[in-house]
């Protein structure tokens, strides 16, 4: 019925337009032209707003991307980018054949695989947090757990150096009460990887749980009510309702984490490096800094080649993880 009447009014209005004829259509086109002109004007403002960002992108993103071609040069600051000699894949060969190659990869991977192993901890924490009945307690717990995220890397590593110091560090003081010999944790290569990963967990467990807490807030309460009527206990409901609710988010984040396996954050590794743990703390990103900026050798091309090698592996891993996830019928980035 309704459709019919709508059709009718359409027909009527069309007939009316026909009757009124060409006069109005001329007026209409003029008005449309003006509107179009105005619209173009509005859009010009939009492009104007985009301009600063685009300038930024060209200067600080696209110029450096163009500069990656340094990896195929023997870049010499004196001769500049255009005067430097092109050497093809020489720098890559140098890296792959260097005696440090496998150790750097092994060090990098052992940190990032350990990091992937603690990936579920924030999810578990969010699931637990979500079971708190008291809103005030939940809010307070969240506030406390976020605090460590806002501490700078320098302070975090500084705290570690202070707490784990063999002389008067609080950890060794406590160990001394039980008669244990002090351990110089920061200089000991056996402790580097666990301390790196666990301090990261300490810093970001609460923060990384935010996303999952958000996903849990969107769970339809009806699901829980229905499950309760069916006699499901709380644990059962966490397992069968809440956990599936956070899985899509977790999959996306996991894909991105896999795509970053080769790029362990430079900051903390560099700050935690000591002569005693260099054997395990020398990772790809710190090595890049070492050969190019720190030593004064200024081996820019070599450093760029290593970064590029690394980035390509990361990109392959990212695409691979995304592809597999898609094949398994899970979420994907694209």
């Amino acid at each position: 019925m309704r459709e019919n009447s709508a059709e009718k009014t359409d027909k009527i209005s069309a007939a009316e337009a026909d009757v009124k004829g060409g006069e109005t259509s001329k007026k209409k086109t003029k008005r449309e032209q003006i509107r179009k002109f105005l619209k173009g004007f509005r859009e010009y403002q939009l492009y104007l707003m985009l301009l600063p960002g685009l300038v930024y992108l060209v200067l600080f993103e696209y110029l450096p991307i163009f500069g990656i071609s340094m990896a195929f040069q023997k870049f010499n600051p004196v001769q500049g980018f255009f005067g430097s000699e092109w050497v093809g894949l020489y720098q890559f060969e140098r890296f792959v054949k260097s005696p440090l190659f496998w150790r750097l990869i092994k060090n990098t991977l052992s940190i990032s695989l350990f990091q992937l192993a603690v990936f579920p901890v924030p999810i578990i924490f969010a699931l637990v947090l979500n079971e708190m009945r008291s809103r005030v307690a939940k809010r307070t717990a969240q506030t406390i757990m976020y605090a460590s995220h806002f501490i700078s890397v320098v302070v975090l590593v500084g705290i570690m150096f202070t707490f784990f110091s063999p002389i008067n560090g609080v950890i060794n003081n406590i160990r001394a009460i039980f008669g244990a010999e002090p351990i110089d944790y920061m200089q000991n290569k056996n402790y580097f990887v666990p301390m790196f990963v666990l301090s990261g967990l300490w810093q970001n467990c609460g923060w990384n749980s935010i996303i999952y807490v958000g996903a849990l807030a969107n769970v339809d309460p009806c699901l829980h009510e229905a499950a309760m009527i069916d006699g499901a206990g709380r644990l059962r409901r966490v397992w069968s309702i809440n956990l599936p609710a956070v899985i899509p988010t977790a999959v996306i984040l996991f894909i991105m984490a896999v795509g970053n396996v080769m790029s362990v954050g430079f900051d903390k590794a560099f700050l935690m490096q000591t002569p005693g743990n260099l054997e395990v703390s020398n990772i790809i990103s710190t090595y890049v800094y070492e050969v190019s900026l720190r030593s004064g050798l200024g081996d820019y091309s070599f450093g760029t080649a290593i970064s590029l090698f690394n980035a390509v592996i990361n990109l392959i891993l990212l695409f691979g993880a995304n592809f597999i996830s898609k094949k398994l019928g899970q979420e994907s980035l694209w």
Partner: peptide, 12 residues
């Protein structure tokens, strides 16, 4: 997804 990285940025 693609960025110049430390050194090219430094040179720029």
């Amino acid at each position: 997804y693609v960025n110049g990285g430390l050194i090219p940025t430094f040179i720029v």
